[in-house]
Write a protein that binds this DNA or RNA. Structure first.
Length: 491
RNA sequence: GGCGCUAUCGUCUAGGGGUUAGGACGGAAGAUUCUCAAUCUUCAAACCCGGGUUCGAUUCCCGGUAGCGCUACCA
C-alpha cells in the first residue's frame, strides 16, 4: 500500500533474448482493415524491418458475436495489398483459449483476481443508478469480498461467474511510453475489470497480455485510443509477474472535420484505395507521414527502403493527424510518374482487366513507350483504363466537355477530315513529319495551328488533356490517326 | 460528468528563451500557347487564450478553453 508505485512497475523488456525486437499487429476481425489500423500495422512493420526484428500478425477474434471469417479475409487482403508481410502468424485467439484460462487461473490463485457472480442486468442497473446519482459508473466491488470458499460453493451450485481483476485500492499505475513519456493513472480510477466472461471466454485485456507475454513481444505499438487501457494491462503484467514491453502509443487519424475517421468520411477501408487506383507504395508513404516525421529531414517522397531506413519511434508525434486526401493523391501522382513503365505495366494491366479493356496492341515495346508517354499526367492507375482508353482501344467515348471546347466548329471538323486524307498519303509518319504537315496545312488554310492541334487532340484521344499531339500521333500510328481524323466529320 | 492525452499556416509538419517562425500538400497569380491534371516563377497563409518565470516567451511553468480518447461480461 505504502509502496512507491514505481517499484510496483514490472521491469521493461525492450529486447528479446535474441536481441531483436518482436512486435505485432493485432486487429479484431469485426470490420475491414481501416486506415487507422493500416497505419498501426505499417508502423509495426517499419519498426520490425528497421531493427531486423520480427513482425507478428495476430487476429483478436474473442468477440465471438462480432468476428467473422469474411473480415479476417478482408484484413489479410488489405495487409497483402499494402505489402506488409508478417513473419509469424496469423495466430487466432480463439485457438488459444486454454492459455487465457490458465492465466486467469494463475491470477485467481495468486489473489489478483476473484469470481464475480453479478449478472449483466445487475451491473447495468447499478451502473445506471450510479450515473444518475453522479457517481462514477465503475464496478462497485460487490463480489470482491467473497471468500474463496463462498465462491467455490456458489460455483459448485451451478451459478455462473465471471473472473475480475482485483485492482489495488490505492497507489497509481504508470509506464514510460515511448511516445508520451510517463503516463500515470490513480488506481482508484481503474475498475475491477473482467478477465473471463461468465461463459469462460476471455476479454480483450486478458488475451492481449497473455499473448504478448507468450509471444514475447518487446514493443507494443498501437493506437492512442489504448492509452486508457494500458494501466489495466500494466497491472496484469504485474499480477502475472511478467516483464512489460515498451508501449508506444500512436496518435489517431482524424477526418477533415477533426473527428475520428469513420465511414462518414467516405473511404476508410484500405481496399477501397486499391480500387481507386492508388499505388500501394504511395499509400504507405502517405500513411507513414501521418503522425511521424523522420528525425533527419529528407523530403517527403520516401519509398519503402527509405522509410525502413529512417523509421524510429522518436519521430512519432503526440497530436492526432487529419487525413488529407489531396495530399494522398499527390503522393500517388508522384509515384506513378517516377515508376518505370516496366513496373507500372502489371498494375495498369490489372486496371484494364477490371475495366474489361482489351488493349489492341500488345507488343511490349509499344506498351511501355505509351505508358511512359502517359504517366506524367496520371493521377490514378485508373486513368489508364478511363481517360487514357483511346490509346489502347477503339472502344472509347469522347469527353463532351472537350468536344464542346475544341471540336464544335464545323469548319474545323471539315479541315481535320481533309488533314486526315493528307496523312493517309504520308509515307513518313514521325513526330517531326506529322507536325510539319499540320503546320503547312494550317498555313495553307490560313488558320492557327493551335486550333487544328486542339481539335485533332480531341478527335484522336477523346480528351482535352493529353501529351503533345504529335507524340500522340506517333503512339497511335498512322492508321488510327487517319481513321479518327476522318471520323471527326461526325463528331 | 470523471480520468487521460493533445494544441505552430486550411492540412501534414520543422523549429525552439532573442528566427524575416522553415518545408510539403492544397489555394491564388503569372509564364508557356499545343491542351493541362504537365512544367517554371511568384504570392497569401500559423505559434489557442490568460497569468507566471525571465532583460526577453511561440518555446519553460500554472490555469483556462477547445478537440480527441477511455469510461462494457467490445476490441
Amino acid at each position: 500500500m505504502s509502496q512507491n508505485p514505481e517499484t510496483l512497475q514490472p521491469p521493461t523488456s525492450s529486447t528479446h533474448p535474441s536481441g531483436k525486437p518482436r512486435v505485432r499487429f493485432a486487429p479484431s476481425p469485426t470490420g475491414y482493415l481501416h486506415v487507422g489500423g493500416a497505419r498501426t500495422a505499417l508502423f509495426n512493420w517499419l519498426f520490425a524491418r528497421h531493427t531486423g526484428g520480427t513482425f507478428i500478425l495476430r487476429i483478436e477474434d474473442t468477440d465471438l458475436e462480432r468476428s467473422t471469417d469474411a473480415m479476417v479475409e478482408g484484413i489479410l487482403q488489405g495487409m497483402r495489398w499494402l505489402g506488409l508481410d508478417w513473419d509469424e502468424g496469423p495466430f487466432f485467439q480463439t485457438q488459444r483459449m486454454e492459455l487465457y484460462r490458465q492465466s486467469a487461473e494463475r491470477l485467481l490463485k495468486s489473489g489478483h483476481a476473484y469470481y464475480c457472480f453479478c449478472t449483466k442486468d445487475d451491473l447495468e442497473t447499478r451502473r445506471a443508478k450510479a450515473t444518475a446519482e453522479g457517481r462514477p459508473p465503475k464496478y462497485d466491488g460487490t463480489c470482491r469480498g467473497l471468500t474463496p470458499e463462498e465462491a467455490a460453493r456458489r460455483r459448485a451450485a451451478g451459478e455462473a461467474a465471471a473472473v475480475r481483476f482485483a485492482v489495488p485500492e490505492s497507489g497509481a499505475t504508470s509506464w514510460n511510453d515511448a511516445v508520451f513519456d510517463k503516463v500515470e493513472f490513480a488506481n482508484t480510477e481503474i475498475e475491477d475489470f473482467v478477465l473471463l466472461r461468465s461463459d469462460g471466454v476471455p476479454t480483450y485485456h486478458l488475451s492481449v497480455v497473455t499473448d504478448d507475454i507468450d509471444m514475447q513481444m518487446t514493443h507494443v505499438i498501437r493506437g492512442a485510443d489504448h492509452i486508457s487501457n494500458t494501466p489495466k494491462q500494466v497491472l496484469l503484467y504485474q499480477g502475472l509477474g511478467a516483464a512489460m514491453p515498451v508501449f508506444a502509443h500512436v496518435p489517431l487519424i482524424l477526418g477533415p472535420d477533426k473527428t475520428r475517421l469513420s465511414k462518414r468520411h467516405g473511404a476508410t477501408s484500405v481496399i477501397s484505395y486499391r480500387e481507386e487506383g492508388l499505388v500501394p507504395e504511395a499509400f504507405r508513404n502517405f500513411l507513414a507521414l501521418l503522425g511521424w516525421t523522420p528525425v533527419e529531414g529528407s523530403g517527403e517522397i520516401l519509398g519503402d527502403q527509405q522509410l525502413i531506413e529512417l523509421f524510429s519511434l522518436e519521430g512519432i508525434a503526440r497530436a492526432d493527424a487529419v487525413f488529407d486526401r489531396a495530399k494522398l493523391d499527390w503522393f500517388n501522382t508522384e509515384y506513378i510518374r517516377a515508376y518505370p513503365a516496366q513496373k507500372l505495366l502489371p498494375m495498369v494491366e490489372e486496371e484494364w482487366q477490371k475495366a474489361g479493356l482489351e488493349p489492341q496492341r500488345r507488343d511490349p515495346t509499344w506498351l511501355l513507350a505509351t505508358i511512359d508517354l502517359l504517366k506524367p499526367r496520371a493521377r490514378s492507375l485508373k486513368d489508364f483504363a478511363t481517360s487514357f482508353r483511346a490509346y489502347f482501344t477503339d472502344q472509347f467515348e469522347a469527353d463532351p466537355a472537350a468536344v464542346a471546347k475544341f471540336l464544335k466548329d464545323d469548319a474545323v471538323r471539315a479541315m481535320l477530315v481533309e488533314l486526315g486524307e493528307q496523312y493517309s498519303r504520308q509515307e513518313e509518319f514521325t513526330e517531326a513529319e506529322t507536325e510539319r504537315v499540320l503546320r503547312d496545312f494550317a498555313a495553307a488554310k490560313n488558320v492557327k495551328a493551335g486550333v487544328l492541334i486542339n481539335g485533332a487532340r480531341v478527335a484522336l484521344t477523346g480528351q482535352g488533356v493529353a501529351p503533345s499531339l504529335f507524340a500522340v500521333m506517333a503512339a497511335l500510328g498512322k492508321e488510327k490517326t487517319v481513321v479518327r481524323l476522318r471520323a471527326a466529320a461526325g463528331a
